[in-house]
């Protein structure tokens, strides 16, 4: 059973408090998804904001045949796409000082090598690898929320990962191998 089901039922009936609990439960993943896809913390917060409004309004129609998280991710991916379309210009943030991780907007990852490499990927590859490797979605969930066959999802993960590795110029002995 979807671990969110009880809260979802309550939120569907208009209980704001239940929806707030769901937001609390998922906000980090929704924000990470939007930020990795968009490459900008501010745009990501806007996309999450827009997605939550859409989700709240559409919730009575959510039929619970998908996991709630999958449904939310789909709305975030669409909202991020819309935010990007509105911007129409490169969205990478001003590099912030990586020495101060407590700064509200400082984020080494977003301005770092990984994000630059992600930004250079085709958007469909980027979305697939973020959903699969960062958020831990299954092939089936990604297929459902991006509306493509599982084979396409796997192909996008293959290309996303291999292109990313090439962009990062990983050495023959990757530094990550000891983690």
């Amino acid at each position: 059973m979807d671990p969110d089901e009880l809260l979802v039922r309550r939120a569907q009936r208009g209980e704001r408090f239940a929806f707030e609990k769901l937001v609390e439960r998922h906000e980090q993943r929704l924000y990470t998804l939007a930020a990795r896809v968009l490459g900008s913390r501010e745009d990501a917060a806007d996309a999450v904001q827009e997605a939550l409004v859409r989700a709240w309004l559409a919730l009575p129609k959510f039929r619970r045949d998908a996991r709630f998280s999958t449904w939310l991710y789909r709305i975030v991916v669409n909202a991020a796409h819309d935010v990007r379309a509105k911007r129409r210009e490169p969205t990478l943030e001003e590099p912030s000082d990586p020495a101060d991780p407590r700064d509200r907007f400082a984020d080494r990852e977003l301005s770092g090598d990984l994000q630059r490499a992600l930004d250079a990927l085709d958007e469909t590859y980027r979305t697939a690898v973020v959903l699969y490797d960062v958020l831990g979605c299954s092939y089936a969930e990604i297929a459902e929320l991006t509306e493509v066959p599982e084979g396409t999802v796997k192909s996008r993960i293959f290309r996303g990962r291999t292109e990313l590795a090439a962009l990062l110029g990983t050495p023959a002995e990757p530094a990550e191998s000891n983690t």
Binding site: Q28, R104, V129, V134, G160, L164, E176
Partner: peptide
């Protein structure tokens, strides 16, 4: 290809979840 698949995976999986601004 396999080496890149593994390297790409490692880089992505090392990425932390991000917190909304306070």
């Amino acid at each position: 290809s396999v080496r890149r698949l593994e390297a790409g995976r490692s880089a992505l999986r090392a990425a932390p979840l991000l917190d909304l601004p306070v």
